[in-house]
Amino acid sequence: MDLPIQEQVVYEHPVALLDVSTHYCPGCTHGVAHRLVAEVIDEMNLQSKTIGVASVGCSGFIYNYFDVDFVVAAHGRAPAMATGIKRCLPDRFVFTYQGDGDLASIGMAEIVHAATRGENISVIFMNNANYGMTGGQMAPTTLPGQKTTSSQTGRDVEQQGFPIRVSEMLAKLDGASYVVRRSLHDPKNIRQAKKAIRIAFETQLRGLGFSMVELLSVCPTNWNLTPVDSMKWLEDHMVPYYPLGDYKVHPAVAEMRI
């Protein structure tokens, strides 16, 4: 007697993501974020019209992992470069993928003005509280007291100032339509992050303006923690300083039904 066979695909490689090994360290959340972006591109059938803008930092080689057109910006200038592309090809889907050193330090002017212009682009902002690529220096997002290779006794806010909460700051700008912070430290939060990326991309597709998803991320290598411990460190230290939530949802975005 044949038993009825029901097959359901529960896991497959996203089409937009190339089947190659990445250069990321073990336990790094760039891989998770890449996968989420690729899954959303697949679900929205965006692959053929997508142009990505890579930044300078660990994710500078993102173009090796996605089966979409890419350019690589100078440090911090990805939102400016994306602006140039989007203004020339307004019907293409344009996103930047930037780290916290890139976006919140050297590229602060570019991100603020892209947001305030309501530039119709989407930004994936990876916040791991340090400069990963150059070996773990203090970033604008490094927590007070956090030890890095350039704040070796811990970030001293009297000398080095305070971390910047980018999402809260950009949310104040009228041009920003969708600005939220999510985290990648456990499955529940990863699912919520994916949903936010979907909304951000839909925001652009519907011409509703600037969207950004900040993703709290880990850097086990430079934090000197195991992958598991770094997830815990993120949850215990970063989430309290960088509360998860929706900081700006334009009414037109809130009305979207996906």
């Binding site: 803008v53 350019v71 910006a73 100078a74 200038r77 400016a80 470069m81 994306a82 602006t83 140039g84 592309i85 203004r87 020339c88 570019e110």
Partner: peptide, 8 residues
């Protein structure tokens, strides 16, 4: 850098 993107 906008020019850079547009020129690409």
């Amino acid at each position: 850098n906008m020019v850079y993107g547009a020129a690409c």
